[in-house]
Each structure stands twice: as structure tokens, then as C-alpha cells.
């Protein structure tokens, strides 16, 4: 199959319209994911100049507005069938909150750096992890399959970490950037009118959000909301209002990220199964304490009869099928 040259008039004008809409939306989705990735990362020169020059704010608002608009277009079409589809404006609202809280001067950006470390940085004991596995059940050792699944996604689309960035593949910023890349690829393919290609990258974004990003972002947002990262020391050491203000930036970013991913989950018709909340302090003695709070530790071998379920013989009509065969199979499955 050959792809028609792009300058030919398209056979199906509607399809071409659809593709240019896909291209436009994808570019803005790519930009939002990229900006989020940049903003959640350890603040560096790129972020600083984007913040100080105002491009960060500008682009964030623009892309959010475009996507809100895009949704209006889509929801206009389905308004009658789905009255809840008026998502109009909530990305822009979230982006606006981010912009309101974003540091704008160099001094503010410097402050901002210490907020980042107090939330996420190891050097000041910030304890909000930015890794998917930290929010999923099990430990790193038992989650290597998750890591290899994520790495497999990157690999499948010819992406790898830059040589100077040594990072675990389940890091938030890398996952965000991956979706950004796929959105960009979508835009490029849409321009070429490569339907098969679009389908592949679209499916991949859906699966990635369903299996990874969408499963833990809401938990991550909650962790920031609960302010788990702002240790006592960090608050004492910094001007309190500044910390609050800066935390507001990450609060708002997390809300924006969640809304974007939720909306994309709808877009790709996937339903991420959000990880269950992990109890703050799992107690090995849970259920073993009595009403006075004393530990009543019994080995459990006594009196813990397993639930018997009596086997009741049900009457049945005699069947005339002698010698039924044990289900057999081979390495391809049952016969």
C-alpha cells in the first residue's frame, strides 16, 4: 500500500478534516505533556528561562485553551447523547491556577528550587516519590515486570533515555514525556494521512495511560495535596508563605496533569484502574489487638477452623454418557 502524496487533493475531505483536527490537538497535547514533564522535573535552566520569560505560562494557557475548545467541538457533536460532556474549560482553569502560582522572577525561581527539593528531593528529605512503582502494590524487587513493560513501550517506539539522563523508566517526567512524544508522532502521522500509523500510536497512548500513567497519577496528586513532602524542617527553614505558595504551584500542576490524563483516558476509551491507597503505616499486628488496645497475639492454629462448605449431593437425572474423558491438552492449550 502506498500513501498518497500529501499535495494531492484528499479523496475523502472529511477524513482530511479529521486528520488536521487530530494533528492540531495532538500538537497541543504533546506540548502540555512536555511542559508538565519539564515542570515536575528538578528545576534547571530550561525551566527557569521559560518561567522568567513567560513562555511557560503563555504556552500552557494556549494549549489548555485549544484542548478545551477541541473538546467543545467534540462534545457539541455528542451533546445530546452525553449531557455530562461539558468539560469545557477545566483544563484552562487548571492551567490558570498553575500560572497564578508560578514563579516569575529569578528570585522566585530560586525559592522554587528549594520547594522542589523539599517535596521531591532526596537532599532535604522530600518524601513524595516520583516513581510509578512506589505507588503500586509490591516492592521494586517484585515489580521488575512493570519496569520491563514500561521500557518495552519506549523501545517499541524507538525511544530511549538521553545518555546523560540516568533515570528509572517509571519516573513521572519520563512517562509524561513519552506520551508527549507519541502525541507528536500522532500529529506527524495525521499530516501524512497514515491511518494505520495513527491507529498504532493512538492505541499505544491509550494502553500506556490505562496500564501506567492513569493508574498512579491520582495517587501522586493526593500525595502532593496532603503535603507529605513538606517536612517540618523544610517549613522551618523557609519563609512559610513562600512554601505554601510554591506548593500551590505543584498542587495546581498535579491537578492539571490529572485532568489531562483523565480526559485522554476518555479520548482513548480506556479505564485505568487506579492503585489502591497504601496505608501509611501497615501494622503487622492489625486485627490482633483487643478492645483495650493490648496485643492479643495468638498463633492462629487454634480454633481457626477453615470455613467448611458442605458438599450437598444434588439429585440429577441419570445421563447415559459413560466414561467422560479427563480434559487433555498440549503446549498450545486444551484440546
Amino acid at each position: 500500500m502506498t500513501t498518497p502524496p500529501t499535495h494531492d487533493p484528499p479523496d475523502h475531505p472529511n477524513e482530511a478534516d479529521g486528520n488536521s483536527r487530530i494533528a492540531r490537538e495532538s500538537v497541543h497535547r504533546a506540548r502540555l505533556y512536555k511542559l508538565l514533564s519539564l515542570a515536575f522535573d528538578r528545576p534547571g535552566e530550561t525551566l527557569e528561562s521559560a518561567l522568567v520569560s513567560g513562555t511557560f505560562d503563555e504556552q500552557l494557557l494556549e494549549s489548555a485553551a485549544v484542548l478545551d475548545g477541541a473538546v467543545t467541538t467534540v462534545s457539541d457533536e455528542r451533546d445530546k447523547s452525553d449531557p455530562t460532556a461539558d468539560a469545557h474549560g477545566d483544563l484552562h482553569d487548571a492551567a490558570k491556577t498553575v500560572v497564578d502560582a508560578s514563579p516569575a522572577t529569578e528570585a522566585e525561581v530560586d525559592e522554587h528550587y528549594s520547594t522542589w527539593t523539599s517535596l521531591f528531593g532526596f537532599e532535604t528529605g522530600g518524601d513524595i516519590p516520583q516513581y510509578e512503582i512506589e505507588f503500586s502494590p509490591g516492592t521494586l524487587v517484585t515489580s521488575t515486570d512493570t519496569l520491563s513493560d514500561i521500557a518495552g513501550f519506549y523501545d517499541a517506539f524507538g525511544l530511549s533515555l538521553a545518555d546523560d539522563r540516568r533515570e528509572r523508566v517509571d519516573h513521572l517526567c519520563i512517562e509524561l514525556e513519552f506520551v508527549s512524544q507519541l502525541a507528536l508522532q500522532t500529529a506527524a502521522l495525521a499530516k501524512k494521512g497514515d491511518e494505520t500509523g495513527i491507529e498504532i500510536v493512538t492505541d499505544a497512548q491509550g494502553s500506556f495511560i490505562e496500564d501506567h500513567l492513569g493508574r498512579w497519577l491520582p495517587r501522586y496528586r493526593e500525595a502532593i495535596e496532603d503535603g507529605e513532602g513538606v517536612g517540618e524542617d523544610a517549613i522551618d527553614a523557609t519563609d512559610e508563605t513562600a512554601v505554601d505558595g510554591e506548593t500551590a504551584f505543584y498542587d495546581a500542576l498535579a491537578v492539571l496533569a490529572c485532568r489531562l490524563v483523565e480526559r485522554d483516558a476518555d479520548r482513548f476509551a480506556v479505564e485505568p484502574d487506579v492503585f489502591a491507597e497504601t496505608p501509611a503505616e501497615p501494622s503487622p499486628l492489625e486485627g490482633l489487638t483487643n478492645s483495650e488496645g493490648d496485643v492479643d497475639f495468638r498463633c492462629g492454629t487454634c480454633g481457626s477452623g477453615a470455613g467448611p462448605s458442605s458438599a450437598s449431593a444434588t439429585e440429577r437425572e441419570p445421563e447415559s454418557e459413560p466414561e467422560p474423558q479427563l480434559p487433555m491438552g498440549n503446549r498450545d492449550g486444551p484440546y
Binding site: 479427563l326 480434559p327 487433555m328 491438552g329 503446549r331 486444551p334 484440546y335
Partner: peptide
């Protein structure tokens, strides 16, 4: 539903 089976080989 005979979902459990024994492999011939």
C-alpha cells in the same frame, strides 16, 4: 467448565 487440563506431552 473443563478449564483445567493435563498436557499430553
Amino acid at each position: 467448565v473443563q478449564a483445567v487440563y493435563k498436557r499430553q506431552e
